[in-house]
Design a binder for these strands. Structure first.
Length: 235
DNA sequence: GTCCAGGGCCGTT
DNA sequence: AACGGCCATGGA
């Protein structure tokens, strides 16, 4: 019996509860503070194949220099930027990627993320994917967690869980995304989808870290009754 | 010391 | 289309 994505969401939410990743503080005042969405955008790049604890160090470095602003990074000295993001690893490419994106936002949107996110969702995704260093997961993380737009983020954990559970999707990014979104759209009201995509992605990361690791820890997993992989283990 | 983390690019088949 | 090498730090 196949496990539907909405059933996966219900089980994980009941087991682990609300994760509340990257909530955007909408009470900030534009003139006095940097846009909190920009920190999320930078974090989405810095966390590429990297532990979040390392990303936090890099974000703290940037924050301590008041560098979490589009114009500051767009006009920054590249070596300075490399040193600030160094703890997040791959610091040469990440400094370039971060600066490149900041320059794009500076030149085309005058540092105004409202103007940027006001575009059509599909066109925004194409635009992000055209930038060097922004692939599908980073683009979708920016759209979902910074833009609060309804798009599901597929990562290596999602792919692994889709392979092990009887979820009926191939292993390509777009196929998994389409399969999950289609079922969730059928099940929940449109107004709730963005929040559900947000939570389900975070819950999948949690499940993959606690149980569905490369070497799986199945005996206390909330999904063991549904998992074909577990049933193939000779426990 | 070894493994690996909330990927993406580029060159080769 | 799919795969392999590469990029790099820090915590377990």
């Amino acid at each position: 019996m196949k496990l539907k994505p909405h059933a996966l969401y219900e089980i994980l939410m009941k087991e682990f509860g609300n994760q509340n990743w990257w909530p955007i503080d909408r009470t900030y005042h534009k003139k006095n503070h940097s846009d909190p969405r920009f920190e999320v955008i930078i974090g989405a790049i810095l966390t590429q194949n990297t532990a979040w604890s390392n990303v936090e160090k890099a974000l703290e470095n940037l924050k301590s220099k008041n560098m979490l602003e589009i114009q500051k990074i767009a006009e920054s000295d590249i070596e300075t930027l490399q040193n600030l993001v160094r703890p997040s690893g791959f610091f040469n490419q990440k400094a370039s990627r971060v600066k490149n994106l900041a320059q794009h936002l500076h030149q085309n949107y005058h540092d105004d993320l409202d103007e940027f996110f006001d575009n059509n969702l599909h066109e925004l995704r194409v635009e992000l994917l055209s930038l060097k260093g922004i692939g599908p997961e980073t683009a979708d993380s920016i759209l979902l967690y910074a833009g609060n737009l309804p798009i599901f983020v597929v990562d290596a954990y999602t792919k692994r869980i889709c392979e092990r559970l009887p979820l009926d999707a191939s292993n390509s990014y777009n196929d998994i995304q389409h399969y999950l979104e289609t079922d969730l759209k059928r099940t929940y009201p449109e107004k709730e989808l963005m929040q559900i995509y947000n939570e389900l992605h975070a819950l999948i990361v949690l499940l993959a870290k606690n149980h569905c690791k490369k070497k799986p820890v199945c005996h206390i997993c909330p999904l063991q009754n549904h998992c074909k992989f577990k049933n193939n283990l000779s426990q």
